[in-house]
Design a protein around this nucleic acid. Structure first.
Lengths: 135, 135
DNA sequence: TTTTTGTTATATTTATAGTATAACAGATAG
DNA sequence: CTATCTGTTATACTATAAATATAACAAAAA
């Protein structure tokens, strides 16, 4: 698994995990329908508790990014992914707001900030060489 | 005071307060050198505990956005504000990353996302008329 | 001197994060 | 059918953060 956790981070590890799975889906590293490790396997693999993995899986299932079946295990959403509806955009704006404000206060202009976002977006969409060559 | 808190929010209220003060500085609503209410006054004003206000003030002092003097009270940084150094940009990227990833997964393209950021930046820089009529 | 200021010190409550076990129930492979 | 692996649920415990509640201290200014 490509997941890397920082146990010292202030960011909860279940969120780090969930974030990296979303990023995997975003980049195509995780294909629709692809199976993910079981909660126990991944927990052992990452050296954390199975409930922590389960919490990440549950939140992504709740959002519609994963499907979870009994013995089938956990798979990446094979059908249509959730959309950028108004609910999401509202939350997105709320989360971006303090970041944009601090960037502004610190003297970043509009172009610097949007370009940073652009660069970030592209680096996620086309990650810098993930083990395998193509897809 | 223009601060509005959502006590039901998952965002800690000390952070809501700190964020809104930063936004005030960003927009110019809070001018350099301007005095802020005392921790007790603002706490009473907002209906929260003085330690919660103090925590917000301390974090902003730590970052360099505020100065705190004994009897003088708290004032907006009159000198040069902190800059967008690499430390900040690294943190900024780390915080933006999961938001950009989810936006991407939900089908927002690069332009939509950067435009949303642009709109946000501008609305902070030039806020849509503060409640009061004059000044 | 008195008041107001930030500051420090405790203490308590509540919620979240993370771990640790254990057990349950459905699906599948043997 | 049986054994195993799956997600799931339940409980319990520890640690930490957030928020509140009092109280007191020390510096600055009126």
């Amino acid at each position: 698994m490509f997941v890397e956790l920082d146990l010292q981070s202030e960011v909860p590890i279940y969120k780090q995990l969930a974030d990296q799975l979303v990023e995997g889906i975003a980049s195509g590293t995780l294909a629709p329908g692809q199976a993910l490790p079981s909660v126990r396997t991944l927990a052992a693999d990452l050296g954390i508790n199975l409930h922590t993995v389960n919490k990440a899986y549950q939140s992504l299932k709740q959002e519609g990014f994963l499907e979870i079946h009994r013995k089938k295990g956990v798979i990446v959403q094979p059908g249509p992914l959730p959309t950028a509806d108004e609910t999401f955009k509202t939350r997105l704006r709320r989360d971006l707001r303090p970041l944009a404000a601090e960037a502004l206060v610190r003297g970043m202009n509009e172009q610097e900030l949007t370009e940073l976002m652009q660069t970030l977006y592209r680096s996620i969409q086309n990650p810098p060489s993930e083990g395998g060559t193509s897809r």
